[in-house]
């Protein structure tokens, strides 16, 4: 069983945390930049009055609505950052798997967009409450998505879903294209293996098992006793 205290896992966890926070800070900056331009546009529209022109009230209202939309977008980003950051609070927590995966999908959206990949959520209506390490589970999902994004240059669509099976769940990350294996990917696969071992999970299907490219791993519903905590 791998140890969460191992330097490798600690370094990788810190890198994962940093990647997510840096990415979301960029997203938040984008939101603030848009608000800045929209507020500037409102001022431009109001200055029309100084030049003796009528104030375009419907336009001002439309711009205000766009600002509100960006504020909501910012709130969603902050909410996800907050919940993600708190997922390191406890080494073992009771959490909803669907919510955790939805959060990872949201947080991975920037990476996918920059890689010009469509990240699709195909989560079932039923969920499962896990008693496990929420941070490790999220990191495992993100690592699979990251593998899918980096393993082939022409991937354009990655679908994430899961099935509740027995005393646990199987999480699937499926690429529209064949996932190829190389040295960099082996490093990520090794990390995934470490993470899964630390939460009592296992790889069900790895890279190259199917022409379509699919990664499947299983997480048990309860993994409290065996979990080694920092």
């Amino acid at each position: 069983m791998s140890d969460l205290k191992s330097p490798r896992i600690r370094d990788e966890s810190l890198a994962f945390f940093g990647t997510i926070i840096a990415g979301q800070s960029h997203e938040l900056t984008n939101v603030l930049n848009i608000i800045n331009e929209l507020a500037g546009l409102q001022l431009d529209l109001l200055r029309a009055e100084e030049q003796g022109l009528p104030v375009n009230l419907p336009r001002l209202q439309e711009v205000a609505a766009r600002i509100q939309h960006q504020v909501h977008r910012g709130e969603t980003i902050i909410g996800n950052i907050n919940r993600f950051s708190h997922s390191v609070d406890l080494p073992v927590a009771v959490f909803d798997l669907k919510e955790a995966i939805e959060r990872v999908l949201f947080l991975a959206e920037r990476s996918a967009r920059l890689a010009r990949v469509e990240l699709v959520s195909d989560l079932p209506p039923e969920s499962i409450v896990l008693e496990s390490n929420p941070f490790c589970v999220q990191q495992a999902v993100f690592t699979c998505i990251d593998l899918a994004l980096r393993s082939a240059s022409d991937i354009r669509r990655v679908v994430v879903d899961y099935v509740v099976r027995g005393d646990g769940a199987e999480i699937r990350v499926t690429s529209a294209d064949h996932l190829t294996q190389d040295e960099n990917i082996n490093d990520r696969l090794e990390l995934l293996q470490f993470l899964l071992e630390s939460i009592g999970g296992s790889m069900v299907k790895g890279l190259g098992d199917e022409p379509s490219g699919i990664l499947v791993f299983r997480v048990p519903q309860h993994h409290r006793a065996e979990l080694e905590v920092p």
Partner: peptide, 16 residues
């Protein structure tokens, strides 16, 4: 700029 709303708004302000 890949942020459509940003680039559209900046364009409108520059045209003004």
């Amino acid at each position: 700029d890949d942020e459509v709303e940003f680039v559209e708004t900046l364009a409108e302000r520059m045209r003004a």
